[in-house]
């Protein structure tokens, strides 16, 4: 436990130094904040524009899709805030700077995710919360204590699921450093996919996000539970509650994959 606390202290210190570094360029940083706000706003424009033209999408109303969007976005924004800098990690393999990480007395993954930290990404979390409030205003949810608890639980579980998928797939860089864009399909692509009702996608894609890369547990199953909607996929009702369990499993798998990949690391210097 003392170990964990020490690690948390190191984490906070590293992140704080990264934040200070970003504030060194104030004009650029302000533009980044505006850019992030605009980018995330635009993200929701796609859904808004669709519902300007049609009343329903796969039997989901605008309020219901907004709930999916909010759950998917807040989870992903938290993941992006915490570990978004895994994007820079293939460059470390290419340059051979990953060697330095291996000789320092801290877990390699912790060092990689604290290489940089973008405080502007908080903007995205806030935007998700705004859409969540909007969704709850639009919807007429039949509230129970369990349903109210399901929302924060889904967000936490979703963030862990995204992070696990990201970490596990980023290890591809240990083998094929140029192929890292594949990861984007499941991270950015996964966050995009989770914003929509899974029922509108092809059967094979539904199978993929339920059984292989568990993105359906980020927003879809929790939203079904909160809304009291039937699953278009015809899967057991119990899956609506499975997100936290799936998150723990995903994290364990991702951790194992990362450790195994690091053992196979061969430096660029030969």
């Amino acid at each position: 436990m003392a170990d964990l606390r020490a690690l948390a202290a190191v984490y906070v210190r590293l992140v704080a130094s990264r934040i200070r570094a970003h504030l060194e360029y104030p004009v650029s940083f302000s533009l980044q904040l505006v850019g992030t706000a605009l980018l995330t706003l635009i993200d929701f424009v796609a859904i808004a524009v669709i519902f300007v033209n049609v009343p329903e999408l796969g039997e989901w109303t605008v309020g219901e899709v907004a709930l999916l969007y909010a759950l998917a976005t807040i989870s992903f924004a938290l993941t992006d805030l915490a570990i978004g800098h895994l994007d820079l990690f293939p460059q470390m393999i290419r340059d051979g700077t990953f060697d330095q990480i291996l000789v320092r007395p801290l877990p390699s993954l912790l060092q990689v995710v604290t290489m940089d930290f973008a405080p502007r990404r908080i903007g995205k979390v806030i935007q998700g919360v705004v859409v969540l409030v909007l969704a709850l205003v639009l919807l007429d949810v039949d509230w129970t204590v369990a349903r109210a608890l399901a929302i924060p639980l889904a967000i936490a579980a979703g963030a862990i699921i995204y992070a696990s998928v990201w970490v596990a797939l980023a290890t591809i860089a240990f083998w094929i450093v140029d192929a890292i864009e594949v990861v984007n399909a499941f991270t950015y692509g996964g966050s995009f996919l989770s914003q929509y009702p899974i029922g509108i996608f092809a059967r094979w894609l539904q199978g993929l996000v339920v059984f292989v890369v568990p993105l359906a547990f980020v927003a879809y199953f929790p939203a079904l539970y909160v809304l009291g909607k039937d699953d278009a996929l015809g899967l057991p009702q119990a899956l609506s509650f499975a997100s936290p369990l799936v998150a723990v499993l995903a994290a364990l798998v991702a951790g194992a994959v990362w450790r195994n990949a690091v053992r196979h690391y061969r430096s660029a210097g030969g």
Partner: peptide
């Protein structure tokens, strides 16, 4: 003028 390209990049990306 700005030295750091990240701010304008995000803005341009959104547009």
């Amino acid at each position: 003028w700005l030295l750091d390209h990240r701010g304008p990049t995000l803005l341009a990306l959104a547009l």
